[in-house]
């Protein structure tokens, strides 16, 4: 993984770790929405690529959110 790939994984995990602490069961949806709101499409494309290559290190919520965002 390149340095940028690692950063994307870390950023997604950080976002997920915040939304996991929030009440309700919207952690995945909120993480996905945050990524949609703030990430440039090229970053999302890069994440799509990472998912396709079975990236390691993604937190389960971050993983689910990344899947949701990249599926769109």
């Amino acid at each position: 993984m390149s340095n940028t790939d690692e950063k994307l994984v870390r950023m997604a995990n950080q976002i997920a770790s915040f939304f996991k602490t929030q009440p309700g069961d919207k952690a995945t949806a909120s993480t996905a929405q945050h990524i949609k709101d703030f990430w440039d499409p090229s970053m999302i494309a890069q994440m799509r690529n990472l998912l396709a290559n079975d990236v390691e290190g993604l937190d389960p919520i971050a993983h689910a959110a990344a899947k949701e965002v990249t599926a769109a």
Binding site: N3, T4, K7, D37, F38, W39, D40, S42, M43
Partner: peptide
């Protein structure tokens, strides 16, 4: 769609895009 933030611009620059 949102654009790149400063750190993302620098990352993208290192990646050549």
């Amino acid at each position: 769609e949102p654009g790149l933030r400063i750190p993302n611009m620098l990352d993208a620059a290192v990646d050549g895009t």
